[in-house]
Amino acid sequence: MESLSAFFAMGGYAGYIWPAYGLALVVMVAVLVLSFRDARARETELDLLQQARGRRRPSAGESK
């Protein structure tokens, strides 16, 4: 399709535009995925530790 290839060509600036959008996408997805996995890993670790101690619930002042 002509208009599709025209779209990808971006008036000749494709070599600048697509890497820009691509980089933003890659970085933002990576940060999101890593943050999600980090949260999951830490919370699982905390759960296991708390279970091992018999579900001792820490008070609000302790989290530092």
Partner: peptide, 24 residues
């Protein structure tokens, strides 16, 4: 909105990590 989402996830991780540190 993306920032808010990621910040919440990272805050959860930091809070959990801090609690783990305290327990340890």
């Amino acid at each position: 909105a993306y920032w808010l989402m990621v910040l919440i996830l990272r805050a959860r991780a930091e809070i959990a990590a801090a609690k783990v540190h305290t327990i340890r």
